[in-house]
Each structure stands twice: as structure tokens, then as C-alpha cells.
């Protein structure tokens, strides 16, 4: 569920050349630069109604990792 929504958010920010999977990497596959990353994060925050602390970003490399982080933050911030 999260993953499907996340695919849509990513496609809005930067339309991917190949279909997205949980393994898609933000920098190596999608070629996101630092500004686009921040834009994506802002979109994710609004879509899922969460804060994504920017300290977490260095550890997130793939779409699947971001989805897992979103789920964790949602449960923390909306219990």
C-alpha cells in the first residue's frame, strides 16, 4: 500500500525511465540530485502526513527503504 502510493509520489517529482520497484535506488537509478531529494521528501511528508527528519536521509538508498521508514514514522507519529 505504502509502496504503491510512494511510486505515485516519485513519478510526480521525477518521472522514472523504468518501472519502479522496491529495489530502485534514488541516486544511482533515478539520478536524483540534492534539491530533488528535498522536494521528494516534502511531497512524501504531505502525502503521508508525517515528518521525515533529515537525519534519516543518509541511510535511505532505495524506494523500499523509504517505504519502510514511512511506515515506521507513521506508527510513531499517529498512534
Amino acid at each position: 500500500m505504502t509502496l504503491e502510493t510512494l511510486y505515485e509520489v516519485i513519478a510526480r517529482v521525477k518521472p522514472p525511465e523504468k518501472p519502479l520497484t522496491a529495489e530502485t535506488r534514488f541516486v544511482d537509478d533515478l539520478g536524483l540530485d540534492s534539491l530533488t531529494v528535498m522536494e521528494l521528501v516534502a511531497e512524501v511528508e504531505d502525502t503521508f502526513d508525517i515528518n521525515v527528519p533529515i537525519n534519516l536521509l543518509p541511510e535511505i538508498h532505495t524506494v523500499g527503504e523509504l517505504a519502510a521508514t514511512i511506515d515506521r514514522l507513521r506508527s510513531e507519529q499517529h498512534e
Partner: peptide, 27 residues
Amino acid sequence: RLSGATMVRFRHNDVEDLEKRIRRLPK
């Protein structure tokens, strides 16, 4: 970053967004 605190950005000069982010912090 040097502080080790959790860093949450709010939209530039947007006080409502700041409030929203405070509301979202873990209870």
C-alpha cells in the same frame, strides 16, 4: 547536524507548516 538532535525542516517562512510539523511529532 553537529548537535545530534532530530532535524525537521519546515517550508520557508511558512508558520502554518511549522505548526503542522510540531503537531506531527511523536506523542
